[in-house]
């Protein structure tokens, strides 16, 4: 398994607030999302666009994956948002409310045009697609495979449940199918899967439970809306010492089996099969990405 980049946490920072944008870099999030969409009032869209552009261009945080979330594909702001976002040269642009592959292709084409005009390496800016409706979930695989720039899909649970006429609950059964559908689409396309926000920033125990499920399902990371959620989510996505030791034992047993030409190998009576080997490799890759020496 190759090197994996850390995308455990994506922290939103409002493009309307310099202090919010400047402070966000001092937390431990892996990805910092400069937001031009929901957190910016309509009358401040122009100013936020210029603020985010200048901050990313002149005060880009080091050691973080930098994302700019633009306004919706059909909004009046998208053209100018792209002009600004591409020229700021973030690692990725995050597109909200994607429902069809052709929407992503249209955005990707426009990004290429701006890259060319601005003398930026073509294809250097990646895309994250927010999936926030039943239609987006149904089309998740074609969205994930729509363009080489797409590197991640992220579930937006609030808008998704609204589109479903569903209630939004802490148990989150109403998004269980969407989570799995997006995960499968991401795995099929070879892109990363980012889970939805846990909205109650005061409920740390609830967040722990939620992110435990997030990780067990197979997600690569989770969007967070408040700095106090960052360390909880990072910890949940960092393999424990026990998990790392078990993964090392699994891989050592497989190596030993190969050397001794054994048809099957076991640990503590458990037969080691291919999925266990894959999980062990994933655990070690996650640990290495988190800076753990294994």
């Amino acid at each position: 398994m190759g090197k994996i980049a850390l995308k455990r946490t994506s922290l939103y920072a409002s493009g309307a607030s310099p202090v919010n944008l400047l402070q966000a870099r001092f937390y431990n999030e892996d990805c910092l999302v400069y937001d031009l969409e929901d957190s910016v009032p309509v009358q401040e869209k122009d100013a936020a666009r210029l603020l985010v552009y200048n901050l990313v261009k002149y005060q880009r945080p080091t050691g973080k994956y930098v994302i700019i979330r633009v306004n919706g594909i059909y909004s009046e702001y998208i053209d100018e948002d792209l002009e600004a976002a591409v020229r700021a040269k973030p690692d990725a642009i995050r597109i909200p409310k994607v429902e069809h592959a052709y929407e992503v292709q249209k955005i990707a084409k426009r990004i290429t045009e701006i890259e060319k005009a601005a003398g930026i390496e073509e294809g250097s800016i990646e895309l994250w697609c927010n999936i926030e409706s039943y239609l987006g979930v149904l089309n998740a695989r074609e969205i994930a495979e729509s363009d080489p720039r797409v590197v991640a899909l992220a579930l937006g649970a609030e808008d998704f449940t609204a589109s479903m006429k569903a209630a939004r609950t802490k148990a989150s059964l109403e998004i269980f199918y969407a989570r799995n559908a997006i995960l499968m689409a991401c795995r099929a396309a070879g892109v990363e899967a980012i889970d939805a926000v846990f909205s109650d920033i005061n409920d740390v125990e609830g967040l722990k439970e939620d992110v435990k499920l997030t990780r067990n399902l197979g997600f690569d990371g989770k969007t967070v809306v408040h700095p106090r959620q960052v360390d909880v989510v990072n910890a949940a996505f960092t393999p424990s010492k026990k998990e790392i030791n078990y993964a090392l034992r699994v891989l050592a047993a497989i190596e030993e089996g190969k050397r001794e030409h054994k048809g099957a190998v076991t640990i503590g009576g458990d037969m080691i099969d291919k999925p266990m080997e894959l999980r062990a490799q994933t655990t070690l890759a996650q640990a290495r990405a988190a800076g753990i020496n294994v």
């Binding site: 310099p18 400047l22 122009d46 100013a47 666009r49 210029l50 603020l51 552009y53 200048n54 901050l55 261009k57 002149y58 005060q59 100018e80 002009e83 600004a84 020229r87 005009a117 601005a118 003398g119």
Partner: peptide
């Protein structure tokens, strides 16, 4: 900081002139 001052002055000028920001000028 400097880049915030730049951004705010740019925004105020665009609003005061009634013109959009010339992104191509950044190239």
């Amino acid at each position: 900081i400097d880049c915030v001052i730049r951004a705010r002055v740019q925004a105020a000028i665009c609003r005061a002139t009634g013109e959009g920001f010339n992104w191509k000028g950044e190239d």
